[in-house]
Structures are given as structure tokens and as C-alpha cells.
Design a protein around this nucleic acid. Structure first.
Length: 207
DNA sequence: AGGCGGATGTTCT
DNA sequence: GAACATCCGCCTA
């Protein structure tokens, strides 16, 4: 059975963010099944993290998922796009992980239809991957990552050869939190959102 | 009512 | 590959 493997809270959010790399994110829809391997994540460390939505203990209707159990999706709207996050801890410890990029693996034709794009442009950004998968806020917000139309397969995973660490994207003026290396990615994978060259795609996975 | 949040896609070298 | 126009819902005032 495919369930949230970090229920016992014995792992930090930073650790889980790295463990999610290589896991298969899939989405079931009337159009068919599609999905890809997670290649880029960012950790958001709760009320003390100036870049987190819940910084300072903020609690508003859209943030409710943070104050529930780990292993559910938190989805927020950014202009026209949706950003997909996994809640990692507990009611009293509102932390989460932003999924920033996928390597397409299943239903490439369906994703291309939704994106009107192909290749890297399919899923190499947080808003692009939600569009490619057909993520729907009303349907997927708060749903379980283990068994829902939108879910993560923690078993059939690839193993990154090398995990890169870097500061998170787009959070200037957040004090020390701006420069912390809380962004993780599969080194050399061409689908990482700011991968420039994208040449060395042969050396990204062990398996 | 107004401002903020960041990602996308186009257009220009 | 860098610059910029555009996108709109949630919160705070």
C-alpha cells in the first residue's frame, strides 16, 4: 500500500524534501494517466521561516492544509498558475515542500495537449507542472498524497546520483532565509527549473 | 480598495 | 539568454 512514509515525524522537512527527489508524481483524470519524476523541491520551515506563507503563525482560510496532518497537498494560486506543495509535519508544526519540477514519464501526449508545449517546457517549473498534470485546486487541495487522483508513488522511484542544494527561488528580502540552501534538485537533470545548459542528462540518476 | 506575490511566455539582442 | 509585460486571488487596510 502506498501511504505517506513520514507519518512518525522522525524526519525533518529538509530531509523529506531530498527524499522526494526521484519519486513519481502521478495524476489520474478523464483524459488519462500522466506523471513524472520529481527533480526539484524547496523546503519551507514553518512559522520561523520568513519565506513561508505561515511565517509568524499566520493562519487564514487558504493556509488550512498547513494546520492539518502531514502527507496532504497544499495548493495555492499564483496569478494564473497553481503551485503544488506537500505538507510534511503536524497540526502544530506547519511545514511543507514546494514541488518545482518533474521529469515527464507517463502520458506525455496528454501533458503536451494541456501545455501546448513539448520537451523541457512541459514540466520544468512549478506552474508548468501543475498545468501539465491538470491539477485542480478544488479537487486536489488537502487530498492525501498516498491515495488520491493526484498522488506520489514512493516505491517506484529513481535514485538521484547527486543532490544539488541552492537558495530558494524568488524570495529576496527574507533575511537569513533568503540565502539558506533549502532548494534541492537532481544535479544535471535538464528539467530542473533553472537548468541552463541541460547537456549532461546522462549522469543524473543511479537507477 | 489596494497591494502583494513570483512564474510564464514573448520579444529582443 | 536577458528583459519585461502580464497574469488575478487572497489579505490587510
Amino acid at each position: 500500500m502506498n501511504v505517506w512514509p513520514y507519518q512518525d515525524k522522525s524526519f525533518t522537512t529538509e530531509e523529506i524534501a531530498q527524499k522526494l527527489l526521484g519519486c513519481l508524481l502521478v495524476r489520474e483524470s478523464p483524459e488519462g494517466l500522466c506523471g513524472g519524476y520529481i527533480v526539484e523541491t524547496e523546503a519551507y520551515l514553518g512559522v520561523k521561516d520568513q519565506a513561508a506563507h505561515v511565517y509568524g503563525g499566520r493562519r487564514t482560510p487558504r493556509l488550512e492544509a498547513f494546520y492539518r496532518e502531514g502527507g496532504i497537498f497544499y495548493i495555492y494560486t499564483l496569478h494564473t498558475h497553481l503551485c503544488l506543495n506537500v505538507i510534511t509535519q503536524s497540526e502544530t508544526q506547519p511545514e511543507g515542500i514546494l514541488i518545482r519540477a518533474l521529469e515527464p514519464a507517463i502520458g506525455l501526449d496528454i501533458m503536451a495537449q494541456r501545455r501546448h508545449k513539448t520537451g523541457k517546457l512541459l514540466t520544468n517549473g512549478p506552474g508548468k507542472l501543475t498545468q501539465a498534470l491538470g491539477v485542480d485546486k478544488a479537487q486536489d487541495y488537502g487530498s492525501s498524497v498516498g491515495e488520491s487522483p493526484l498522488r506520489i508513488d514512493f516505491l517506484k522511484r529513481k535514485v538521484p546520483k547527486l543532490v544539488g542544494k541552492a537558495p530558494r527561488i524568488g524570495i529576496p528580502n527574507k533575511g537569513e532565509w533568503t540565502s539558506k540552501n533549502l532548494r534541492y534538485f537532481v544535479e544535471g537533470n535538464p528539467y530542473v527549473s533553472d537548468a541552463k545548459g541541460a547537456k549532461d542528462s546522462s549522469r543524473d540518476w543511479i537507477i
